[in-house]
Every structure is written in C-alpha cells, then in structure tokens.
Design a protein around this nucleic acid. Structure first.
Length: 268
DNA sequence: ACACTAACCTGCAAGC
DNA sequence: TGCTTGCAGGTTAGTG
C-alpha cells in the first residue's frame, strides 16, 4: 500500500480537481472497510463545498465547512479522478461525485482503508509523530527518542508516534543508503548515524515523490498511472539478488512481522 | 512505557 | 490441474 510518497502523489493529483468544488453526491457500495464508513456521511457532505484538501501522515483529509472526511488507502487502496458514469470495477467501493461533472472513485481490494466523517477533529490523527519532510524531523530528534530503546531500528522508524509516513519500502531503502542493519537495536546507534539516517529518509521519500511513488501491484495515481520508483529500489523486494553496490546476495529476515531485506556486507 | 503478536481482507505465486 | 500455504505499500487491539 501506499506509503507517504504514494499518498502525496495522490494528493497532488486529486487536489486541483476537488478544491472549491461542490459535492453532488457520495455513493457507498461497500461500507465495510477497516472501519465501517461513517453512517449518514452522504447527507453530511451533499451540497457542501470542498475548502481544502490536505495530507497528514498517510491520511488524506477533505475539509468542508461542516466537518471533514478522513481517507486512508490502507494496503491496497487508490483514488482516481474519472467520469462518473465509468463502469464500476470489482473492488470499486466509493464514488464522490462533484457538481463540476468529475468524480473521485475509491478502489481497494483488501479493504484495509477507511472513509470517515467527523464534524470535529479525527482521533486517528492524535499521537502522530512529525512529518518526515519537516524541519523538526532530524537526526538529533531520532537520537533523543531512541535512548534506551531495544526495538529494531527499522521497526522504530516505522512507528507512527516516532515519525509518520515511513513504511516497509522506504524504511528498508533508507537503512540501506545509510549502511545500517535493520535489526540493530535503535538505542545502540550513534547520533552521527542518525543524522545520516534522517537525511536519507528525506532524500528517499523526495526521490520517490518525484517519480510518482512505487507501484508493486495495486497502486496507481489519480490518473490511473503507476509510479516509477520501483526501478530505483536497492533492497526492497530483492531478497537473494545481488546487492547493487557490492554484488553480495541480499539477505531477508522478519522484523515486527514485516519482511526486511538488507545487504549483510554493506549494512552493519 | 515498551515490545511483540494476532487480526482485519483479497489476490497471487510457490510448492506439492 | 488442483489444493494449500504464505505473503503483500498499514494500523490497532490485546498480551506480557
């Protein structure tokens, strides 16, 4: 599923179509998602204008004058701008139709995503760490939070209360760029190495955004196109293949129930 | 507080 | 050709 670059790419794709537009209708075909789609959401949004569209962590938020819709793409979700009369494909669950004539359609085979409405703040946005591309996220920040922590550094940077938006792909890639083994205890990494790691997380995410994200199977941007970062991957999905730096075979282990590929020679 | 697991759901690939 | 198993961009609830 989409990590931060894929959600950001989606945001940039849909925002121009949604901003200032009035919602004509919301059609829910499948309300059974990660959380049930908020009941009565159709009546709440119908006839209201979209004032702003933003991203926080991997959530997208559509702000109306009477509340906001919180959208998460889960593991396999995607949003597309389409003509409203386009045939519904399997796993197309929701359509937001605009008065302008366009529509936003939500597709999600695994249904781990969500579509929630609230007239106040969403609790899902509580207790989130800083955005990785913000100034407050840096090596000193990571180092200070890591003190005494025994958790594997890869799981540490994938923890949403530490920093948001860094999922399995980009955690793996940033750790490779920095030369840190993913299973190293977070509390046993120097401040200096955290400086490099924080920088590499930013660089990796920015590069991925510039290439439209990573498409493995389900993900596509709001125009239906894939992302092109897959060809840039050094370790993710390359278990057993030669390291692009030293040609040693890449190793794989499981950390926090996620597969973790790394180079035993380049990463220590 | 922290570390770790199971669970949600569908599709696909690998192994037998 | 089938059937079974395990794994997949995430997050949360529950356990010690």
């Amino acid at each position: 599923m989409p990590e931060l670059p894929e959600v950001e790419t989606t945001l940039r794709g849909i925002r121009p179509f949604l901003l200032g537009e009035t919602i004509d209708d919301l059609i829910i075909r499948q309300p059974s998602l990660r959380y049930p789609v908020t009941s009565g959401i159709e009546q709440s949004v119908r006839g209201h204008a979209i004032k702003e569209v933003s991203r926080r962590a991997k959530y997208l938020q559509l702000h109306l004058d009477n509340g906001s819709m919180l959208v998460h793409l889960g593991m396999s979700g995607s949003l597309r701008i389409i003509e409203p009369n386009v045939d519904w494909k399997k796993h197309d669950h929701i359509q937001l139709k605009l008065v302008s004539g366009k529509a936003l359609r939500y597709h999600d085979p695994r249904r781990f995503g969500s579509r929630l409405w609230s007239d106040e703040a969403h609790w899902q946005l509580n207790n989130l760490g800083p955005e990785p591309l913000s100034k407050e996220f840096d090596g000193d920040y990571l180092y200070s939070l890591s003190k005494g922590r025994k958790i594997a550094v890869k799981a540490f940077v994938m923890t949403n209360s530490v920093v948001v938006g860094v999922g399995n792909i980009y955690a793996s890639e940033a750790l490779f760029s920095t030369g840190i083994r993913p299973d190293r205890a977070a509390g046993r990494i120097s401040r200096n190495r955290y400086n490099f790691l924080a920088e590499n997380i930013k660089v990796t995410l920015k590069n991925a955004i510039n290439l439209g994200g990573t498409t493995l199977r389900d993900y596509s941007n709001s125009a239906g196109d894939p992302g092109y970062f897959k060809q840039e991957l050094f370790v993710y999905g390359r278990s057993g293949l030669p390291c692009k730096t030293c040609s040693n075979a890449l190793a794989e282990s499981r950390i926090g129930q996620r597969s973790s590929v790394f180079c035993p020679k380049c990463q220590v």
